[in-house]
Write a protein that binds this DNA or RNA. Structure first.
Lengths: 213, 213
DNA sequence: ATTTAATCGGTATTAAGATACCGAATAACT
DNA sequence: AGTTATTCGGTATCTTAATACCGATTAAAT
């Protein structure tokens, strides 16, 4: 039975914002929150928030009161995978790769980077934040041994496709791709792209337009 | 005269992919490329590529031949702001901030990080990649002196709003926000958000759904 | 107890982007 | 020279997400 993406891509994108906002509140077991207040607090359209929260909330909101913050946080965390820990490996220990290894915020979402890899032997000396950097030849073994499910690609774009294929062969189920290319893989593999250049492009294009007028 | 975003957000997001792909080709002044071949090369829907390229291309494509790669690269670079250099400042020299300072790929898009700032005095010892890290008290002066137009926010989310406001007061026109919150600023300020957590959320949610069936 | 105000959940409308289609143009082939 | 194949550019359709609307519900106020 095909359990389709119940939630739209954009909706899932907003969920971390809600979670982050709720956690920033000073709340206890009894604190309630309305979708309206979330919307104003986050500066997002109220209707959107209402829809999103309704989609992921296990409890029904109480008119004139709202929802329990504690329960809502739990629901959000469940959808964002904070419940179960997922093991990940990272390929490419350049600046971006190192930044991600150092970043401690991912554990909040259940992401556990258990090993890093780099083709350059010089990079293997490092032990970033307690995470070992291994040779690419060990990729397959370590992924299978540690049951890693996510591969994080932070290699240059020309190497990304071949790295992705190696990851898939080793049994990786999902890829978080930071290289500015579209990976060509079996549709069953889940791919999420983060393209800094794309984001920057939007910015400078807008700036360019504004400077025109 | 309001020169509206002629190009859709999604379209602008794809432009860097095209540029990156074209540059990866081994081409000279005479090399031609068709939108079809770009589409297959990048694994993107051909119709989408056709529309995007038609929107930004200054020349008309020749049936059965395609377009000059050189000219297409020029057009793309123009839209992505590679032509004019824009000065930027970065606030928050944590791991992510450092990664961005070290990243050399931005100059390709005309982005020039001319200074970094951090509220923590310990961070100011560093001189990352030739970029000085200053005290926040110097923010206003340096932005005005160097005519910085873009502010890059890589501080924790609780500090992001106040930093953004300081940037706006100093005359910053656009903000590249890496903190996982929606900034509440004057609509005239251009804001582009990069939210790693959101991207990760999509991934782990999909993975979660797949593990169900 | 009644009224009031605010919230929820569902439905309807609108806007936008992705996709498909079709005629025109032209280089390559016979 | 005529035919064929391929690509372009414009139009039309379809799908999806954002937005607006409306009735139902219920806590708080009178």
């Amino acid at each position: 039975m095909e359990k389709k993406d119940l939630l739209s891509h954009n909706c899932i994108t907003r969920l971390p914002l809600y979670l982050n906002y709720l956690k920033s509140l000073d709340y206890d077991d009894l604190t309630l929150v309305s979708t309206q207040s979330i919307a104003t607090g986050l500066n997002i359209n109220a209707e959107v928030v209402k829809k999103d929260i309704a989609a992921i909330s296990s409890e029904k909101g109480m008119p004139r009161k709202g929802r329990s913050v504690v329960l809502l946080v739990k629901d959000l965390e469940k959808f964002l995978g904070a419940g179960c820990q997922i093991n990940a490996v990272l390929i490419g220990t350049g600046h971006l790769g190192k930044a991600l290894l150092n970043y401690d915020g991912f554990s909040e979402y259940g992401l556990n980077i258990i090993a890093a890899f780099d083709s350059d032997p010089r990079c293997r000396e490092i032990d970033v934040c307690g995470i070992n950097v291994y040779s690419m030849s060990l990729l397959d073994n370590i992924i299978k041994d540690k049951h890693a499910e996510i591969g994080i690609i932070t290699v240059p774009s020309h190497a990304a496709q071949s790295v992705a294929e190696k990851l898939v062969q080793a049994g990786i189920k999902a890829i978080w791709n930071f290289a500015p290319i579209n990976l060509n893989l079996d549709p069953s593999i889940i791919v999420a792209n983060v393209n800094m250049a794309s984001s920057l492009a939007v910015l400078s294009h807008q700036l360019y337009l504004n400077n025109l007028k």
